[in-house]
Amino acid sequence: MSNNFKTYLKNIKNDLSYDKPMTVVVGNEAADLDSMATAVLYAYYLKSLDGAVNSVPLINIPRADFKLRTEAVYLFDAAGIDSDELIFAEDLDLKRLNDKDLLSLILVDHNKLSTAHSEFLNCITGILDHHADEKQYPEGIFTDIRPVGSASTLVGELFIKNAEETVSGPVGTLILGTILLDTVNLDPDAGRVTDADSAVAEKIMAITGLDRKELFDKLQFEKFNVSSLGSYDLLRKDYKEWQMGSVKCGIGSVLLPVEDWIAKDPGIVSACEKYLKERELDVLFAMNAFTNPEFTRQIVVYIPDEDLRRKTIDFLEASDLGLSEIDSTSVEGSEKCAFYNQANLGISRKKLQPIIKDFFEK
């Protein structure tokens, strides 16, 4: 079955056509490992159930940005997947398909279209997601939106139920690796794992014989291996943005301690300013998460507008994040930026987004 999976991936590019219906499975605009893996997995799942389905996974970033997802580079390689066989943003013209009424869109790891894809709302035919349900999709479509730790858990359940024979090779590696990374190796203390995540992971380990600790340790190392990246690339490595009322807000996930980041680049605020202006944002957050030796969360808030900055910081300091300020006297332009330790480890970007969305909209 692993040969079937690899053959499927190799044939995708050769079979790309704008003259027949296409079901495109696409992850969110941050294109983290969960989004990429789930898109590839679910597209193959659809093909394995019905060979006539023209299902194509779309990696929702430029091909040049794939190298920034160091953990994804590692896991796809471990699964024997050549990145040259993947379809990236510049490889597929969704508008061309839509104009010819040939596009069906399945969203994974998000349930609201990004601004760039907003014109394709009526093309959505299904959703597999684990974020807060924003209910901005057509009525009557297939949806599975549950607060599990990893979207890959949802597609893993489908493989186990309906196509278990395909899980023994690269499919199992992709599912298990993604679940382990998203749930911090199924650790309840990280506040992300659910019974569903654990059940799928245990089943796949039983089928594949993969070593949980070994796989997680390698992925964790690669995820935090950002030593070669400057501040600009750190901000864009794992990034999402939203329009929240009149406020355009971006949140990057940065995988090293704030203290190390400041020591590496005292001009961090300049990098934030450049990125904010480039993305035309009002607010830029960096949520830092790392394990050294224990799992830790920190948050950086960059807001040029003084009034908005003060109101936002007052809100965050009074919230359940459990913030304590980090010394930033060595940072150039620190008056526009705030640096915090975050005591509440359960609030990830996924959970912070609806909290600040409600605040900004009010």
Rank of each mutant, 00 (worst) to 15 (best):
Y137W: 11
G172W: 01
V167Q: 03
A163M: 09
P170R: 10
L158H: 07
L121T: 13
F142V: 15
A132C: 06
I127Y: 01
V171A: 07
A151I: 03
T173I: 13
A151P: 05
Q136C: 14
V171K: 06
T166E: 15
A190Q: 02
S114C: 10
L180S: 00
L186C: 10
G126C: 04
E157M: 14
L154I: 13
T153A: 11
G149C: 03
A163Y: 03
I141N: 09
L176F: 01
K112F: 08
L180D: 00
D129A: 05
E119V: 13
K112S: 13
F159K: 08
A116W: 00
G126P: 03
K135G: 00
V108F: 02
T115V: 14
G172V: 05
A163R: 14
S118P: 03
D144H: 13
I141P: 11
D129T: 08
T125Y: 00
L174A: 10
V184C: 12
V155Q: 05
G140C: 08
S114L: 06
N185K: 03
T178G: 09
H117I: 11
T143V: 15
V167T: 13
Q136H: 14
V108Y: 00
L181K: 04
N122F: 10
L180E: 00
G156C: 09
S168N: 13
F120Y: 13
P188L: 11
A132H: 11
S152Q: 03
T125K: 14
V167F: 07
E119D: 15
E139Q: 13
L181Y: 02
L113W: 08
I175S: 02
S168P: 07
A151L: 06
I124Q: 04
T153M: 09
P138N: 05
I141S: 08
T153R: 06
G177V: 01
F142H: 15
Q136I: 12
Q136G: 12
T115Q: 14
